[in-house]
């Protein structure tokens, strides 16, 4: 209990430090954000195809709205700690972090969340441009759906963070942890709804994808935000998100604990 209280008490100060750190390297973050504009490229591609006839029941405007929502969700669920973890584990700077009375993963979590306001600021010009050129693409869902979206996008961020923590912890055991993560990322980008709505897949594939963790990090909140997923069906998918958050929570925790126990970096 005292450990939990210690972490919570330190969080506001950590948040301020992380925020200052993010602002100090703002040019770097701006580049990260720009690299996440891929949904706009996919929007152009699928719009061209949907211009002729609806794809899998989605009209051109629905396809475009989907990718406009994907642009936003991608930013809100951005976690990039796998590189940071890999770097700190390998060069030994993790040792200093382990000495502190705060759990390193908590420090990274606060760091991830504190980047959000800034990500939003950088996203604003992109959204403004979109609102000016294609105002019909940015529509807000009704209040109940908006609440669902808030829950779903939070779970998606948590899952993205935990997946990266798990892959980051692999650096304790092997040199190739970043390579493993790129493999995951390759699969993820195709199966999560990032480059195509999962509705475009053959139905047998959709049935499998429904239960896999990929959709839970992106396409569920995207579909809620773009008004394709409502009420009970949305709650079902949020349930799946919860399950995956727990599963990856356990995996990440196990890998981290085993890893730290055998950690032998420089200076430890």
């Amino acid at each position: 209990m005292s450990s939990l209280w210690r972490h919570l008490k330190a969080t506001p100060a950590m948040f301020r430090v992380s925020l200052a750190d993010t602002v100090a390297y703002r040019a770097e973050l701006a580049i990260w954000v720009l690299t996440a504009t891929l949904p706009l490229v996919m929007l152009a591609l699928w719009e061209t195809i949907a211009a002729g006839a609806p794809i899998a029941g989605m009209t051109k405007i629905e396809v475009s709205r989907y990718f406009a929502a994907a642009l936003i969700v991608r930013q809100l669920t951005g976690a990039w700690i796998v590189w940071e973890m890999n770097f700190e584990i390998r060069n030994g700077s993790l040792s200093a972090k382990l000495l502190k009375p705060l759990h390193p993963i908590w420090v990274w979590a606060v760091w991830t969340v504190s980047a959000m306001p800034f990500r939003m600021i950088v996203l604003t010009p992109l959204l403004a441009l979109l609102a000016w050129a294609r105002p019909e693409l940015l529509t807000l869902p009704a209040a109940p759906d908006l609440a669902l979206f808030a829950v779903s996008v939070t779970l998606a961020l948590a899952l993205a963070f935990l997946v990266q923590t798990a892959f980051g912890s692999l650096a304790f055991f092997m040199d190739r942890s970043i390579g493993m993560f790129s493999l995951w990322f390759g699969l993820w980008s195709f199966l999560s709804g990032y480059i195509a709505p999962t509705a475009f897949f053959p139905s047998w594939a959709q049935n499998i994808l429904y239960y896999l963790p990929f959709r839970a990090t992106l396409s569920i909140p995207v579909e809620i935000l773009s008004g394709r997923l409502h009420g009970g069906l949305a709650w079902q998918e949020i349930g799946i998100q919860c399950v995956w958050v727990c599963v990856f929570g356990i995996i990440a925790r196990t890998l981290w604990n085993t890893g730290v126990a055998r950690y032998e970096a420089f200076g430890s």
Binding site: L45, W46, I49, G52, I55, A56, L183, G186, L187, S189, F190, I195, A196, F200, F201, P202
Partner: peptide, 18 residues
């Protein structure tokens, strides 16, 4: 090989519909 596969996959998906 997986990288190449994941690059072709979206194209394959697109040509399922057009």
């Amino acid at each position: 090989i997986l990288r190449c596969f994941s690059a072709i996959a979206p194209l394959w998906l697109a040509f399922q519909h057009t």
